[in-house]
Each structure stands twice: as C-alpha cells, then as structure tokens.
C-alpha cells in the first residue's frame, strides 16, 4: 500500500503540487491524469524522490520514503519514462539487467530474469537478448523499457507517459500488454498521462490533477458518471461520456434470456462494441456467447438503459 500524505512541492511561490493525499492499493493500477503543468509528473517524481517534497511524506508499506537513501529507494521502485530512456550502448539484456546489476544479483539470476521478462513481453530471448536498442522498433524499445523497470520485482512501478512516444495503433497494443502483465504479476503501478482515454481504459482508479491539486480520485466509472468539477467533466468530454461509460461495462452484465439473429458477441466484449455491432448490422438484438456457446442476447434497449443509468 502506498500512502501519499499531504505532499506539497513549491517552486518559488508557486505550489506545483498542493497538499495531495491519496492511497494506492497494492496490486492496482492508478492513473494520474491532468493537463501539462497540473503537477502530475512532479507528484510521481516525488514518490521515488527524483524531486524532494517541500512538505508531507510518502509511505510505502508503512515506511516513510524519507528514511531511505534516495538511490537505494529508487532501486526498489521501477521507473519507466516516455521515450524509454534505454542505454544506447548496452544490449537489451544489459538494459533489462541494469537494476539487478545494481542490486548485485548473480550473473545467472540476472540472465534468467532477463529471459523470463523478454518471454513475458513476447520477445524471443535468443533473438533479442544481444541486440542494441537502436536495432529495435519503437514498440519493442518501449517494451524493453517497461521490462527493465520490472526487472528487480519492485514494490511499485512508476510510469511517466510511458506510451507517449508510440503511434496510436502500437499504443493500444502496449496498453493491453501492460494490463495483461500487471494482472499476471500483481504489480502495483502508478502511471502519469495527459490522455483521459488512456486513464479510463487502464486505471483501476483515476486521479485527476488540476493546478497542483487532486480534484477527483475515483474508479473510472465514477469519474465519467459523476465528475467532481467542470474541469473533470471537460477532461472526460461531455459528448463522449456515454460511450466511455459503455466501454467500461462488459456484455456479461446485461445478458438477458432470449434469442437473436446475427453475429454473436462474446460476453467479455464491452457494451461499446455491442452498440457498434448493433448499429452496423441494423439489428435490435444480437446473440451473446460464453466460452463459445450462446447463452442469451444483448438488446439495444438494454444498452440504452445501461448508458442512461449513471450508476
């Protein structure tokens, strides 16, 4: 559990981060979202003490970060940044093994961990281990950057706009991969982005920052349905709110008994996908499947009712 307690960072007379308090549960993804200058990156960088807080403190599993030497603290916290920051003169294996090397793991342990992580990120160890970063595609560089941040099995992974340099198609894929790997490893992740779409699709909880203040800290559905301020509502985008909400709900939640014609939807699909399929095929209802067998149907009416429900 990460507890951020009344943390403030002042530059001159400006409070870049103003008395922010929040608690992050172990094994969850928390996305900090805000416009540039909102203090989101400063907040993140105060957690591994790349910035020293002016006041307040951060506790990781009950221990205040101020009691540990900064460089020792950082070796326990993974850090992935925009533009990956890989060392151009080191191979992929040396890059991923950088933190274990600092922690003086044995050569065998490091090699095993590198291969394990490369496999986890769908990169063949034999093929990629000895390549240099310049010999990888943008998406591969980004994956190696995240693998490096995860190498020492850190208590917490901080990510500062990790997908910012990727083009949209690769970005979606990278987000899915991250979600998948986080579920598999049970990592605790705090991620900074300016993209509300990314925040909603990735976050278990979303923290919206504005002018150094934390204006709302809630699960994505609540951010969409009950924005705390006009700023949050603006960030979500009024017009797209119903669609964003639908994208968070799976078909499984509104399956009803009955039959329908047309192409079946898996129950794991989102209601946004279901709505799209209904509009595209011109059907009022479509069959829904669980594990390949039809278990009921999804109706346009039910989708509409769910979108208007606002929880």
């Amino acid at each position: 559990m990460i507890e951020i307690d009344q943390i403030t960072k002042t530059y001159g007379t400006v409070n870049a981060v103003d008395a922010v308090s929040m608690t992050v549960e172990t094994g969850s993804i928390t996305v900090i979202v805000g416009t540039s200058g909102s203090g989101k990156t400063t907040l993140l960088r105060m957690i591994n003490r790349l910035e020293e807080p002016t006041s307040g403190e951060v506790r990781i599993n009950g221990t205040s970060t101020s009691t540990v030497k900064p460089h020792l603290l950082r070796r326990r916290i993974g850090y992935a940044i925009q533009g990956h920051g890989l060392f151009p003169h080191h191979t992929v294996a040396r890059n991923i093994g950088a933190v274990p090397e600092l922690l003086k793991w044995s050569r065998d342990e490091i090699n095993a961990r590198v291969d394990e992580l490369l496999a986890l990120f769908s990169m063949d160890p034999a093929e990629f281990r000895d390549r240099f970063p310049a010999e990888l595609s943008g998406g591969q560089q980004q994956r190696v950057g995240v693998a490096r941040a995860l190498a020492s099995r850190p208590d917490l992974l901080l990510m500062d706009e990790p997908f910012g340099a990727l083009d949209p198609i690769i970005r979606t894929r990278a987000q899915e991969d991250l979600r998948h790997i986080q579920r598999k490893l049970g990592s605790t992740i705090m991620l900074v982005t300016h993209d509300m779409e990314e925040a909603i699709s990735l976050g278990d909880r979303v923290a919206v920052m504005d002018g150094g203040k934390l204006v709302q800290y809630a699960p994505p559905a609540e951010i969409i349905s009950r924005p705390a301020t006009d700023f949050v509502a603006n960030m979500v985008g009024d017009v797209e709110r119903p669609l964003r909400l639908l994208s968070l709900i799976s078909v499984a939640e509104i399956i009803e008994p009955g039959e329908a014609d047309g192409e079946a939807l898996p129950e794991t699909a989102s209601l946004r996908d279901a709505l799209s399929a209904c509009l595209w095929t011109g059907c009022d209802a479509l069959p829904a499947t669980r594990g390949g067998t039809v278990v009921g149907r999804v109706t346009l009416k039910a989708i509409r009712a769910r979108a208007g429900a606002h929880e």
């Binding site: 990956h84 060392f87 950057g145 490096r148 901080l158």
Partner: peptide, 11 residues
C-alpha cells in the same frame, strides 16, 4: 532520457 532513467533506477 537515458540519464533520467539512470537516475530513476537508482544509480
């Protein structure tokens, strides 16, 4: 970015 990463990983 490489320097920032080096700092961030605890060098």
């Amino acid at each position: 970015a490489a320097l920032e990463a080096a700092r961030g990983m605890g060098m």
